[in-house]
Nucleic acid binder design. Structure first.
Lengths: 299, 299
DNA sequence: ATCATGCGATACCCTGTTCGTATCGTGAGT
DNA sequence: ACTCACGATACGAACAGGGTATCGCATGAT
């Protein structure tokens, strides 16, 4: 059976047109090279070199073989290189799902730094609720999910908590609660609420609703809005208060204030985590990157 | 260094998803196969298979490597196959030159039968005088030439005589020489001649001129013509006689006759031969074919 | 729960191949 | 004619690849 070694050896001889120089290039002695080429010719059933006392030229078969052998060597190289790069997560694809609430702060940052280092990984991004993501991950329709904890059924999934966001309440300027350093959830029981619709980020939505129920009230929602900008605007206009992720606090202005929201004593928070069914190199690379990004991030 | 054997082994394992079955397919025992794949993974610096107790699936790197390895194997196969076929003269190219006088009888027949057996050989046909061909062959501008003997300077060329054509003289119907079985060249000394122009087949042209000189006369050329049809027509019309190759005798009609031309006793002939500087497989195949075609051919 | 089955991993040995060293034969250039 | 350079040949040593026997372990059946 003909091996790549013989390809490499023949290419060297063909390019040098000298057994001696080719042997040098291959870091081997000349006699075994001669023998190897001879064996190759026998196996091919044709002569590749026109020999006199020295190598004169290639035969037509030699010219054909040289060209095709070079291609084969290049393709073998490519196979090896690509496998290595795939092993390092440098090429391949990543089907990443994410909760809507991460789309405005955490996700863009992660995507940017991942793209910078793994430009050749094809990213397939898909927004989905945490429950949908768990299903997708378990059914091999996604590789990695950015979810809100806790997971109802984390069976077969590795879960890596990334950041704990404490919720904040957005208050209109001059609101009586705005004088406080922090606001208890129960204090919002009689305030008019502005919320994201439930279908947009059901995980976070239901967490808040559950927390309110635990505090003994049902939020009085006077308005729903999809865009963070809209919500902030409505709050600033005095229509009501809004419980939002701290990412929204970037939009601090004179006519709106953000205050930490606390439950019975402790901040009301929600954990964002990465979940995946199998640790492929690409997944591991992304997780490692996300971990360090999360560590850098001020709580 | 990674070898094709490892490619083949991995492809087998990846396709069977079982070391045992793959080993069977490869006609080897399972333990060395396991060891070989392990070594491959070490050399690649990445794992290719997800193993539990058995082979579960390919890793992303494994999928990449499988695809690229298949391509590499296919390319290696192609290299081997093409080298073999080139060695048998089944692929490649042939730069064939030929004298104009062969273009109407011998050449087409050779080309046809060569093409039938060597369809994938690229034929590069070029008409040239014998002297030009000799030069082209010696300067590696042609691989094989169909020439008229003798060669002035056959240095470095192998010459294979193919056929000896005896010249014939074409006579108008009713011409006084038409009653003869054969005609001596000297008898044409006072006849009006119709000839090919000298630039069209100088080899044969000069042979005839030389033969006339040896017979003590210079042909009285009343008309030159390029096409065999034209010459035959002019002879039939009684304008003169023409010395032509016997291939023209196919055009025998009631108003024209063809008679063998003899010198002092012997037929005046000319030898057509193949000449080549190097015996490549394609050249050898063509020469072998031409020899057997010439042998079959009635003199 | 226990046991049988099947698969891959490990341990060990052997054979064939491949490479290195030494040397020879032979054309080409001086 | 002689020398030089190159490829071919001969032979020995090291190694890698493959074979056999066996183990550990997960899965599925009883």
């Amino acid at each position: 059976m003909i091996e790549l070694r013989q390809f490499r050896q023949f290419v060297a001889v063909a390019e040098e047109l000298s057994f001696r120089r080719a042997a040098e290039r291959l870091h081997m002695a000349q006699p075994p090279l001669t023998a190897s080429i001879r064996k190759l010719e026998t196996e091919l059933g044709t002569t590749l070199l026109e020999r006199t006392n020295r190598v004169e030229r290639l035969t037509p078969a030699g010219r054909v073989f040289l060209e095709e052998a070079r291609r084969a060597l290049a393709q073998a190289e490519r196979a090896i290189r690509d496998a290595r790069r795939a092993g390092e997560g440098l090429i391949g694809s990543l089907r990443l799902t994410f909760v809507a609430s991460s789309a405005h702060s955490l996700l863009p940052q992660l995507i940017r730094s991942f793209r910078a280092r793994h430009a050749e990984v094809a990213l397939d991004l898909q927004e989905a609720s945490t429950a949908q993501q768990v299903q997708a991950l378990q059914m091999d329709r996604a590789d990695l999910g950015l979810v809100v904890l806790p997971l109802a059924d984390p069976h077969g999934l590795t879960v890596v908590p990334l950041v704990r966001d404490s919720l904040v309440v957005a208050l209109p300027g001059g609101h009586h609660l705005a004088r406080r350093r922090k606001v208890a959830l129960a204090e919002l029981s009689r305030e008019p609420w502005i919320r994201f619709p439930a279908r947009y980020g059901p995980g976070l939505h239901s967490r808040i609703t559950a927390a309110c129920a635990a505090a003994g009230f049902v939020p009085q929602v006077v308005q729903e809005a999809l865009q963070m900008e809209t919500i902030v605007g409505l709050v600033a206009a005095g229509l009501g208060v809004a419980v939002v992720s701290p990412a929204a606090a970037d939009r601090e202005r004179h006519d709106i204030g953000f205050r930490p929201l606390v439950g019975p004593g402790t901040p009301i928070g929600y954990d964002i985590a990465l979940a995946y069914p199998r640790a492929t190199p690409v997944v591991e690379a992304f997780v490692a990157l996300a971990r360090s990004a999360a560590a850098d991030r001020p709580k």
